[in-house]
């Protein structure tokens, strides 16, 4: 479980723009949950997730990972990083080794695991993200864009973290690549991982996550199940987030007097409409 208590953080860039990046954040991420962290560029979401494995230290407040306070100076942050895997935005830009295999092995090797264990983990991680054994011997730079991203994610998965945090995992991918990444996230979640991912897109959150946290101007703006959050479409639009078309369609129909429950996927929408048709016929 990830627990954040009264976290504050300001960027240190001279006196001129002392913009508080994070203001009084309190959060709990339950074990084996799948959470989307939504907000604009500059809303503080990337800063927040970099706190979760000690890459940034807060000005005040505490962070606990499975009961260990990682904000305690005595905590061994390297150990924390093996429990909290962090996949950066455009992670393929960090690939560096001659082969995909060696790149994925980088994390486990840093953990000082035995050669057999490293090997086992590399194969396991590659299988999880859907990379063939043949591609493991290729240079990472020979892979396609989507494959590169998968290889980079495998590099983090090979450390077998209990918690996986991903910054804009689908950024820059085409629709097929996006679907692939979100299918992977769902698979990892099913296998028992705790997953938190950031996104600009309410649509991605609606399709993938169980819970949604909305950030605005360094604060938690809203938090709840996907259904609860999308029921507040108007508020979200006010802070400039674009709600998916389906939510807007449902809102408009409701305003016209139709009995449409809060929906956030196209399948729910068509079901709702079909139910009304069924109701009038029967």
């Amino acid at each position: 479980m990830i627990k954040i208590e009264n976290l504050n953080y300001a960027y240190k860039t001279g006196a001129k723009n002392q913009n508080q990046a994070l203001v009084d954040i309190n959060l709990e991420i339950a074990d084996n949950s799948l959470t989307a962290l939504i907000g604009h560029t500059g809303s503080g979401k990337s800063t927040l997730i970099r706190h979760l494995n000690g890459l940034i230290k807060p000005d005040s407040g505490k962070i606990f990972i499975d009961g260990t306070e990682i904000t305690d100076p005595k905590t061994d942050l390297r150990r924390v990083r093996f429990d909290v895997g962090l996949v950066f935005q455009y992670p393929e830009q960090q690939l560096f080794a001659e082969t995909v295999y060696k790149d994925i092995a980088f994390g486990p090797e840093n953990m000082k695991l035995g050669a057999d264990e490293v090997r086992r983990r590399v194969y396991e991680a590659a299988e999880m993200v859907g990379l063939s054994e043949k591609s493991l011997e290729k240079s990472p730079f020979e892979l396609s864009g989507g494959q590169k991203r998968r290889a980079a994610i495998a590099g983090v998965l090979a450390m077998k973290p209990k918690n996986l945090i991903m910054d804009e995992p689908a950024a820059g991918l085409d629709p097929r690549g996006r679907d692939g990444i979100f299918a992977l996230i769902k698979r990892l979640h099913k296998s028992g991982m705790t997953i938190l991912f950031t996104s600009h897109s309410m649509e991605d959150a609606a399709k993938t996550a169980e819970r949604v946290i909305v950030m605005d101007k360094g604060k938690i703006f809203a938090e709840g199940s996907v259904g609860e959050i999308f029921a507040r479409g108007g508020e979200l639009r006010k802070i400039g987030l674009d709600t998916p078309q389906v939510t807007r369609i449902a809102d408009k129909l409701r305003d016209m007097g139709y009995d449409i429950p809060p929906v956030y996927t196209t399948a729910q929408m068509t079901d709702a409409v079909k139910k009304i048709i069924g109701g009038t016929n029967g």
Binding site: L253, G257, Y258, D259, V273
Partner: peptide, 18 residues
Amino acid sequence: TVDECVNAIDGLLGGARR
């Protein structure tokens, strides 16, 4: 568009409003 879809559904449902 959103509006076209809303209108089309409105047409489909006819007057089945609450």
